[in-house]
Structure formats: structure tokens, C-alpha cells
């Protein structure tokens, strides 16, 4: 079984995130694997461990500096890692196009059995790439998966919906977008990290023919400070709220 995992890098939420001239100030940030992608990778590796002859390959469209993240993915159990060079995509559609073209080239035109992605990246938070990738590849996609079981040719999935859970059954190939709760990602071990250093990283260059669907502009730091009015006591707070909030019961 061929399992592909699409990874991306995002600024570490612990680093100083600042903006200059309408762009992210990259000088002070540390980039890490997108948190949702960790669930995607873990699920792919778990599947591989249960299905003999499976191969997990991770892909990222990123600059060469992303090699560290790919080594981490190898240490976490991926078999192969592919660093895809392409022009920086300006929207999720171009990103999905680049990924599709990288997957098609790597797998020589044969659609992999499963493609895992994180539900959303924590930088632009559009949560569009997985479903777009499914549409571009002409295969089904399921977003926000919280449980996955494989039996024969069927996948049994669960995804969270408003107020409950949807249970889905499907045949692969499919694109699965991983939601928090799908699994508990493992930690790297020193031995695995050492071994990963020796593994090669494949380089692939793609160029896609397409125009963006959406243009992002006006990126700026959000000033959200309010002046907090401290209530004298709980009774005072109830009174304040009953005056200020129309939904407050009793009105």
C-alpha cells in the first residue's frame, strides 16, 4: 500500500511572531511541523505497521530549510521523504496543484492508496488544501477525521460534526485530513533520529500551470486590546451584564 503524507511548516507558536511591511518577519521565528500534520503522519505510520509491504512517503513543498522537518518525519517512521521545490504558492489552490503534481510525478501517474494531510495549517488556517487535492486527483476526501479503521478494502472513518459524529465508510484511494483526537503522535527516539540522518531526502521540482483563485493582502498584526472593567463583586457583574447583553436571561 502506498501512503503519502503531505506536510508543511508553520511558525512555532512559542516563537516571537511579528510582522513587517505586510509580511511575516521570518528573522525571529522558528519553523516547526504543522501540529495537525503530526496526527496525519502518526496515522500513516500506524497503518504501515499493520499492513505488510506498505510504504509511507512524506512530501513538503518548501525551501531547502525544510529538510530538518523531513528528517524528523523519517525519525517518526516515514520510509521516504520528498522535498518539492516550486515557486511559493500564493493560495491554497496553487498549493494543492503543486502537491498533486508532485504526487503524480513521484508515483509515476499511479494514485497512491491513501493521502494524509493535516486538517488545517496554523498559519493561514484556510483548511482547504486536503479537499482541493482530492478534487484535483479525482478521488474522495474526508475532512477532519477523528477515527480511522481499515478492514479489507474499506475504511471506516469518523469525523466530528456539529453536536455529534458522522461515521463514514469508503473505498480507498482517498485523501484523509487529520483532526486532533485521531491518535497520540509518538515522540522521536535518539536512535531513530540518528538513523534518519543517514536516510536520503529525494528532491523534486515541479512547476504548475495555473492562476490563483484568491489573493491575500493587507497582512497586519491584530491589536485586540480592550479596557477591562473590573466588577466590584459578583452581584455587580450580574447587573453589568444584564445592562450590556441582550441575550442575558430576564430581559
Amino acid at each position: 500500500m502506498n501512503i503519502a503524507v503531505c506536510l508543511c511548516q508553520v511558525p512555532d507558536s512559542a516563537s516571537v511572531i511579528g510582522f513587517a511591511d505586510g509580511a511575516l518577519d521570518r528573522s525571529r521565528i522558528n519553523e516547526v511541523m504543522n501540529p495537525y500534520d503530526e496526527y496525519a503522519l502518526e496515522e500513516a505510520v500506524c497503518l504501515k505497521e499493520h499492513i505488510a509491504g506498505s510504504l509511507v512517503t512524506v512530501f513538503t513543498v518548501a525551501p531547502l530549510s525544510a529538510k530538518d522537518m523531513l528528517r524528523k518525519a523519517l525519525a517518526l517512521g516515514a520510509d521516504r521523504a520528498v522535498l518539492v521545490s516550486a515557486t511559493e504558492p500564493s493560495d491554497p489552490y496553487l498549493r494543492a496543484l503543486q502537491l498533486k503534481s508532485a504526487l503524480m510525478e513521484f508515483y509515476e501517474g499511479i494514485i497512491p492508496d491513501l493521502v494524509f494531510c493535516g486538517k488545517s495549517s496554523t498559519d493561514f488556517q484556510s483548511a482547504q488544501v486536503p479537499s482541493m487535492l482530492g478534487a484535483l486527483m479525482g478521488i474522495v476526501s474526508v475532512s477532519g477525521v477523528t477515527s480511522l479503521n481499515l478492514s479489507g478494502e474499506y475504511l471506516h472513518l469518523e469525523r466530528e460534526i456539529e453536536g455529534g459524529v458522522e461515521q463514514i465508510e469508503l473505498h480507498y484511494p482517498a485523501v484523509i485530513s487529520a483532526e486532533k483526537g485521531l491518535n497520540q503522535p509518538r515522540k522521536t527516539t535518539v536512535k531513530a533520529v540518528m538513523e534518519a540522518r543517514k536516510k536520503p531526502i529525494d528532491l523534486l521540482t515541479v512547476s504548475v500551470d495555473g492562476a490563483p483563485l484568491v489573493l491575500m493582502s493587507d497582512l497586519k498584526a491584530l491589536e485586540r486590546k480592550k479596557v477591562c472593567r473590573f466588577a466590584e463583586d459578583e452581584k455587580d457583574l450580574v447587573l453589568l451584564l444584564s445592562n450590556e447583553c441582550s441575550l442575558f436571561p430576564g430581559d
Partner: peptide
């Protein structure tokens, strides 16, 4: 118009189609 980067920033998005 929506928040990006975990709510630390905002950005505008305009349709191209």
C-alpha cells in the same frame, strides 16, 4: 477579512475569479 496566524494577525482575501 479574517484572522490568520492563530489570531495574531489579520488579512484580507480577494476573489480572482
Amino acid at each position: 477579512f479574517r484572522p490568520v496566524y492563530s489570531g495574531l494577525a489579520t488579512a484580507s482575501f480577494s476573489p480572482q475569479r
